[in-house]
Design a protein around this nucleic acid. Structure first.
Lengths: 145, 145
DNA sequence: ATAATAAAAGACATTTTTATCTTTTATTAT
DNA sequence: ATAATAAAAGATAAAAATGTCTTTTATTAT
C-alpha cells in the first residue's frame, strides 16, 4: 500500500497527463490517457467522471470530445485531487487510527505525525496541477512505468 | 485510509500497550490487549501471532501465559513494526505508484516525496517501542478512542 | 435527420483487507 | 496424570478496493 490509494495514484497521473496534453486547447480521450499513464481504461473512466463532476477537470462528449483542463483547473493545487479522491484524512487523521486523537488527548505519535502530515499537506497545496507541463514535454519527468 | 493499514495501526497500539503492561516482567493476554486498544480480539490475535513469529514480541502459552516484550524488543525502533506489517513500501515506493521511479527516471513528485518519506522513516526509526511506557503510565498519551 | 464518436452510467467480477468463530497445541498448576 | 489456561492455527465471512464489460446519452460532422 502506498501513501495514496491506487485510485488516487491513477487520478494524479491522469490529471498531470491531461494538463500537459491539452495546454493548447485540445482534448484528450480516455483511451489515450489510460495507455499513457498505464492504468485500466474503464476504471480510470470512473475516476475521471468523478473528477469532472467535481469541476477538477473538464469533459465534453462526442466527436472531438474528451477531457481537458481550463486555466482555472491548471492553477489549482494538487491537494484538490487528493482530497477529492481519498478525502482529507491523510492530512488530518491520527496515524494510529484513534478517533479522538488531539493535542489534548494525544496518541504517542501525535506530535511527530502532525509534523509529517503538515509537510505533506504544505507540499501538495503548493504544487499546482499545471506546473509540470514543461518538464513532461521535455521528458524530465514521467507518468508511466 | 490512513497512512498505515488498519492492521498496522492495531499492531502499533498493541505493541505500545504490551510494552507498558509488561515492563515489570509480567505477561498480558490477548483479551486484555484487545479491550484496551479497542481492536477486534481475534483479528488482533493473528497480528500478534505474526509479530511473535518475527521476534518483535514474545509469547508463552498456557496459564500465566500471554504476550510480553524483552529488553531487546523494547529497544527496537518502531519502524520494525511498520516494516513487519505493512512492509517498507511506505518508506520507499513512488507516491504515484510508478515501479521504476527514481532520480534518473522520476515522477513529477519524486523529489518532494523523497523528503516526506525520509522524514517519516527517520521519525519511525528514532522512536523505540518502549519509549512511551512512562507517558502511558501517566496518562499523558493514550491508545484508545 | 443520420451516423459516428466519446463520455456517462450501470452491472458485475475479482482481489484484498478486515473481521469472526472454532479447533488444536503447548504450558502450568493441581 | 489431569484439568485449566492461553496462544496458535484453521476455516469462513463480510466489507472495501480494484478491475472489466455493456448499454445509454450527449455531441458533432455529414
Amino acid at each position: 500500500m502506498g501513501i495514496f490509494s491506487k485510485t488516487c495514484e491513477y487520478a494524479v497521473r491522469a490529471v498531470f497527463f491531461i494538463a500537459q496534453q491539452t495546454a493548447d486547447g485540445s482534448r484528450v480521450g480516455i483511451k489515450e490517457i489510460a495507455v499513457n499513464i498505464d492504468s485500466p481504461e474503464h476504471f480510470l473512466a470512473k475516476i475521471l467522471q468523478d473528477l469532472s463532476k467535481r469541476g477538477i477537470i473538464q469533459s465534453v462528449k462526442g466527436p472531438n470530445g474528451g477531457f481537458y483542463l481550463d486555466a482555472q483547473n491548471l492553477s489549482r493545487p494538487l491537494s484538490d485531487v487528493i482530497e477529492a479522491v481519498d478525502g482529507g484524512g491523510i492530512f488530518r487523521d491520527c496515524g494510529l487510527g484513534l478517533k479522538e486523537c488531539s493535542s489534548k488527548n494525544p496518541c504517542p505519535l501525535h506530535h511527530d505525525f502532525l509534523d509529517v502530515r503538515n509537510r505533506l499537506q504544505n507540499m501538495l497545496e503548493s504544487i499546482t496541477i499545471g506546473q509540470f507541463n514543461e518538464d513532461l514535454n521535455l521528458g524530465i519527468v514521467v507518468l508511466k512505468k
